[in-house]
Amino acid sequence: MKHTIEQFADAELTEQMFKIAKRELREDKYVREQSVEQLRNWVQKNEDLRDVRLDDEFLLRFLRCKKFSVPMAQQTLLKYLNVRRTFPHMTTQLDFLEPKLNDVISNGYIFASPKRDKNGRRVVIINAKGLNPKIYTSSDQARAHFLTYECLMEDQATQICGLIHVGDFSGVTTAHVTNWNPTEFARVFKWSEQSLPLRHKEIHLVNVPATLKWLIDFVKGRVSSKIRNRLTLYTQDKELAKYVDPSCLPQELGGDMPMKAMVELWKEELLAKRETIVNLDKIALLSDRGILRKSNFNAEKNANGMNFVSQIESIEGSFRKLEFD
């Protein structure tokens, strides 16, 4: 059976989705209109913002993520722009037609399954075999992630229903891990969770080698308890279909559609939104003075009381000495 992008991508909001919005986000027509207007007025008056989009779809991504708390949506918008400003080599120039970025996507490293699950959620597949760390840098890898998420954040159904992540670690090598500077990896990972207006509903990691357990534990320590409690590890991908709708998975992970076909549909979706995503580079944060911070980054403590930066330094050697079965 031939599948087309029109069957799956950017679904119209259904009655079920409106019910989810009401139940989980406190969203109705009145709240939506009032909150969008308040956030738009704030953006227009904020001297630290330049050329921020004022369309409903863009502003709603921040409001929905924060259940229509306008002050929290304001903070998330500032943090989102600050991530783009702090890590421009990873978060900007997300042109799908740029050769290296196009190659990473075409190789099937990261893509969104074209079909939504029964709860309206898109499933993001991350396939370690699709990235050759001897050819592509950590910046190339990160840009593929940010491109994927920017595309999905444009979709209102995804703003409401959220995402499921499936990471397949089969084929992971030492080079995949040593490709990253440990400190930058930790900062990007932590900042992205706090700054990207996405609803991460479930995270499933399959075929995780025992030698990577320390890295998974490290990542768990850097994310919120909410995300940590939504993360599940499997030693074999056979278990995955019990918890993720098989129709949303590629054949290689127990689903129906070949991964190659899913990737081609995803490329069509990226191409359709290419101009919108590229134009995001016009948006700028001139100062981060409006961002509220709980504590200074260097003073952050982990559960054992160890300084965060010291912890990164203490494990840096582990990134360089990994051996995989």
Rank of each mutant, 00 (worst) to 15 (best):
Thr137Pro: 04
Glu316Ala: 08
Pro99Lys: 09
Gln38Gly: 10
Ala11Leu: 12
Ser314Trp: 06
Tyr109Gly: 05
Phe189Leu: 13
Pro71Thr: 13
Leu54Thr: 12
Leu270Lys: 01
Val244Ile: 08
Gly221Asn: 01
Ile126Trp: 02
Glu37Tyr: 10
Gln38Glu: 08
Gly221Lys: 00
Lys301Gln: 11
Glu47Leu: 14
Asp95Val: 01
Ala272Pro: 09
Asp168Arg: 05
Leu196Asp: 00
Thr232Phe: 07
Arg121Met: 09
Asp28Tyr: 12
Tyr234Arg: 03
Asp10Pro: 03
Asp155Gln: 07
Thr276Gly: 15
Thr276His: 10
Arg289Gln: 14
Val172Arg: 00
Gln194Tyr: 07
Glu300Met: 05
Leu231Phe: 00
Arg53Ala: 12
Gln16Ser: 08
Asp325Asn: 08
Leu77Ala: 13
Arg187Met: 05
Phe185Asn: 00
Val208Trp: 00
Glu184Pro: 02
Ile110Leu: 11
Met259Phe: 02
Lys260Gln: 11
Lys79Met: 09
His145Pro: 01
Gln7His: 09
Phe146Gln: 01
Ile291Val: 09
Leu249His: 07
Gln156Met: 12
Ser295Phe: 05
Lys29Phe: 14
Met262Val: 07
Lys79Gly: 03
Thr14Gly: 06
Leu196Pro: 00
Asn181Cys: 15
Arg274Glu: 03
Phe169Ala: 01
Met90Gln: 15
Trp266Asp: 05
Gly254Cys: 07
Leu131Thr: 04
Arg228Met: 10
Lys321Pro: 00
Phe297Val: 10
Lys66Phe: 02
Thr91Ser: 15
Gly255Phe: 01
Val31Tyr: 06
Asn181Thr: 08
Asp155Lys: 02
Gln44His: 11
Pro209Thr: 08
Glu33Ile: 12
Leu231Cys: 02
Gln16Leu: 13
Pro71Glu: 11
Thr76Lys: 04
Thr158Ile: 13
Lys2Tyr: 07
Ile105Tyr: 03
Leu77Ser: 04
Ile126Arg: 01
Arg121Asn: 12
His89Trp: 09
Lys2Ala: 14
Lys226Ser: 14
Asp217Leu: 01
Gly108Arg: 03
Lys79Cys: 08
Asp168Lys: 05
Ser170Lys: 07
